[in-house]
Design a binder for these strands. Sequence first.
DNA 1: TAATAAATTTAGACTTGTCTAAAAAATTAT
DNA 2: ATAATTTTTTAGACAAGTCTAAATTTATTA
Lengths: 216, 216
Amino acid sequence: MNTLAEENYLKSIYHLSLNDSNVSTNQIAAALNTKAASVTDMLKKLADKELINYEKYQGVTLTSSGEKIALHIIRKHRLWEYFLVEKLHFKWDEVHDMAEEMEHISSVELIDRLDKFMDYPKHDPHGDPIPDRDGNFKKHELQPITALRVNETGIISGVRDHSTAFLQYLEKQQLTIGKKIKVTEIIEYDHSMILEVEQTKIHISREAAKNLLIVI
Amino acid sequence: MNTLAEENYLKSIYHLSLNDSNVSTNQIAAALNTKAASVTDMLKKLADKELINYEKYQGVTLTSSGEKIALHIIRKHRLWEYFLVEKLHFKWDEVHDMAEEMEHISSVELIDRLDKFMDYPKHDPHGDPIPDRDGNFKKHELQPITALRVNETGIISGVRDHSTAFLQYLEKQQLTIGKKIKVTEIIEYDHSMILEVEQTKIHISREAAKNLLIVI
DNA sequence: TAATAAATTTAGACTTGTCTAAAAAATTAT
DNA sequence: ATAATTTTTTAGACAAGTCTAAATTTATTA
């Protein structure tokens, strides 16, 4: 099996790949809170194991076996997050760090049984899709609410910023997964938005709006 | 916090302490499947952290803070074992290795909520007591069935050998936790025993009998 | 109680994953 | 298109945890 460090590198590379096809050394260093030199060392090891495609100075991509491992770790992370929220009643902003540890538990049988125990959830508490045991998932077609115009509606279905601060802010504003929102006004000056959620008006900045995702 | 290796040493020392008050370097090496020289190195580190009392060549004991950590790890191990058996329906001989990984998940809040989720179980699937969050537990007064004489009865409540092989053997013989047994005969020649469990007669060796624990 | 055996520790080395400082390559801006 | 800047890699070092081989201490036994 792979070491904990290797797993964390693969997971980070996967997440970064969603925005840029080639992931740079510095991006990985920033994501993992480490130094570029350390990243270079690890990239060589991962390339030796054929988990990434790596050419000096050119950034990296995951190989299919690297991606498979990354998706399995993400599956575990999201299933444990679901467990923590749905069964142990943690709040959505409390579960990330615990799941960071739990995602490294190795048993495949365990995670399949956990999946069954919770009746095969499709999304984690933040709206992110949970890959199945083969790594497949429907990538959801979400849009930031900034895509909406006045009087248009949507259902809150995900976030782009997973920070505790943002999640707590949303919780406090009642802006949680599944809620139906309607844009009642867009302030021209700063592009902030006034939303209607369950008969209440909520004013959010453009900054926040960009990180709140909906299905239309 | 402590490293994974440190936690495993503390746990092993705790278990070995139950049989011998001073635990030797070689005992620890055997338990952890490592070399005596490695153990000596680690013992120095643990002594520096005041988790064990260590004097060269004299073996070790846990300090109270070392014991507290050991009991917390054991609490986590046994609660996760209970979870795996009761909620995910694993068999009692399948859960040890998974729990070995899960016992190192650090969140105290998580384990307290898990405890509550399962309604505060007192014993793990092998009959071992689960310490509460303060490390307290009733040490059960179990005896091997070799303590019984003919026609005496008891309730199976624990095992001394936790190996997969022994657990599977017991399972196959219906000798599981909670079953009431009666000794119907003791063979003088080899001290093997014939038990009656739910109207069935079962013949077990003295070797096995010594590892099967009951309350009278 | 001296010799032998067993247990334990020390010394020196190796691996993994990290770091800093310096060198090399790639990018950007003049 | 060359200089300046940024990014990446290399070189060398360190901590944690482990190992083998040798030295030392303790225990056993004759």
